[in-house]
């Protein structure tokens, strides 16, 4: 028996919003520690890695490890039926071919259940090597979303260049070019608005705008985002989900033709 209950369905709704443009289907691997999901987009350019820890749920029970293969557009349709303040419970029997979502309104006056067919997914799982990154940049997630959106107007790629002084995002194309430079903040009123850079060595890498914009669908999950970069390795874009886990996106860089 697998059962996981969240007091607020909004976390799960936001998680789905954060992955459903990149992935059409994915396996939720459930064990004692919680729920893990790892999946690449169809073109194998990016990867989503989601962790929801058991202790972040209001109730969590997983008697046997279970893999729930889900069609994410179906799951998204079902989660749209939950009110933001509803409690959500995911349930599956061992060896089940369905998963059930139960939504309960705060006053318990409305209880809905939706059963969804599971899929047998045989997806490739990748080993991600432990990496010491040359640069990590922490900034407001809303600011990062804004930068990606603004620069997307200028070209298909964004160059991210990190030095001791700060981080520069650049794009260029038919209409011209754009540069946004963020300096490390000296002092801020709100911690989540700070720009914090840790740098061993300067790094400049080029990434596809389209994917960065997909990643920013996770903005509502966290006030901050962390970018980790090293020369010639995939970028990591991490959103920490308060009290329950994180979502990380990996994106392969572009290289000169």
């Amino acid at each position: 028996m697998f059962e996981a209950r969240l007091l607020r369905s909004s976390i799960l709704k936001k998680v789905l919003e954060a992955i459903k443009d990149l992935l059409t289907q994915a396996t939720f691997d459930c064990d004692d520690n919680g729920i893990q999901l790892q999946a690449m987009d169809n073109s194998h350019v990016s990867l989503v890695s989601l962790t929801l820890r058991a202790d972040g749920f209001d109730k969590y029970r997983c008697d046997r490890n279970i893999s729930l293969g889900m069609n994410l557009s179906s799951m998204s349709k079902i989660l749209k039926c939950a009110g933001d303040k509803d409690t959500v419970t995911m349930k599956a029997q061992d060896n089940a071919d369905t998963v059930t979502f139960v939504f309960e309104s705060p006053n318990q006056e409305k209880v809905s259940d939706y059963e969804m067919k599971l899929m047998n997914l045989d997806l490739e799982h990748l080993g991600i090597p432990e990496t010491e990154y040359s640069c990590t940049i922490r900034l407001s997630s809303a600011e990062f979303a804004r930068i990606c959106r603004d620069l997307s107007q200028f070209g298909e790629s964004i160059v991210i260049s990190c030095t001791k002084e700060g981080v520069r995002f650049s794009a260029s194309g038919d209409i011209g070019s754009a540069n946004i430079a963020l300096a490390q903040t000296a002092s801020v009123d709100k911690e989540e608005e700070a720009v914090v850079i840790e740098m061993e060595e300067p790094v400049t890498l080029t990434f596809a705008c389209q994917y960065l914009n997909y990643f920013t669908k996770a903005t509502s999950l966290s006030p901050q985002v962390q970018l980790s970069m090293s020369a010639d390795v995939p970028l990591v874009v991490e959103y920490r989900i308060p009290d329950i886990g994180h979502i990380r996106y990996y994106l392969a860089p572009k290289i000169d033709d």
Binding site: L47, L126, G127, I128, P234, K254, I255
Partner: peptide, 14 residues
């Protein structure tokens, strides 16, 4: 603007 690499260039199947 540059050639897109895939993750297979960096990560191994496990």
């Amino acid at each position: 603007s540059g050639k897109q690499q895939t993750l297979m260039n960096f990560f191994k199947k496990s």
